[in-house]
């Protein structure tokens, strides 16, 4: 598990939170970044379940989503919840919160009476994420899902109609691409670019200051 975003050899941070990215650009993320952060975050949460690590505690704010230099995305504990926090959230609760955070990142800076026109597939993804149905077993964050990556699943060709798991979110994100098998590399590259471009802006603004 990754710790806090430590400075690398260059003295620059190794990760930025989604909140830092939004504030620095002072504009919303784009749709491709939204797909990528969803995919990468769900991938990290699935991997955590496969390693039988404790389920994630609540996801409440974009400050908890960290985008790393290598394009990985991790979920940090909420501020104020220490290591001894045991009020874990279910998989569907985390997915719903992630959907809301991603939507708000797409909506960043818009007035209350304005609404961004999203592409239908992305709007459908967010709609599904915020309409999740608890899978059997409830709050176990998919410990039964010990299979490896979504791209190897025979059922991937089936359209996800109701989201039960991180894997369902990843399937929808992969289906957005012309070739589903490109999802891991593509979305990692999008997140890596998001980090790199934000750091570039950060360095530029620091120089001006």
């Amino acid at each position: 598990e990754r710790g806090p975003a430590a400075a690398g050899g260059s003295g620059q941070p190794e990760a930025l939170s989604l909140e830092e990215i939004l504030r620095l650009y002072n504009q919303p993320i784009n749709e491709e970044q939204a797909w990528a952060v969803c995919y990468q975050c769900c991938g990290a949460l699935r991997a955590r379940a496969r390693r039988r690590q404790p389920p994630a505690a609540g996801l409440q704010a974009p400050a908890q989503l960290r985008i790393w230099r290598d394009g990985a995305v991790s979920l940090e504990p909420a501020a104020g919840s220490g290591k001894l926090e045991h009020s874990y959230s279910s998989e569907t609760e985390i997915i719903e919160s992630l959907g809301i955070i991603i939507y708000k990142a797409l909506d960043y800076g818009l007035k209350e009476n304005e609404e961004r026109e999203l592409s239908p597939p992305l709007e459908r993804l967010i709609d599904h994420m915020t309409n999740t149905v608890e899978a059997d077993g409830g709050k176990d964050e998919g410990y039964e899902a010990l299979d490896e990556g979504v791209e190897e699943d025979d059922e991937d060709e089936k359209e996800v109609e109701v989201i039960h798991s991180y894997k369902d979110v990843m399937k929808l994100c992969a289906a957005h691409l012309p070739t589903r098998s490109e999802a891991p590399n593509h979305y990692q590259a999008v997140c890596r670019a998001l980090f790199a471009e934000t750091m570039e802006l950060y360095t530029f603004l620091a120089k001006i200051k």
């Binding site: 959907g99 809301i100 939507y103 009476n113 609404e115 961004r116 915020t130």
Partner: peptide
Amino acid sequence: KGKSLYNIKPKHDSGIKAKISMK
């Protein structure tokens, strides 16, 4: 001001923004 990369429409009562804001 630079051109927006996305379209903005008035918020609709049955739209996704209204739904999310009720969560």
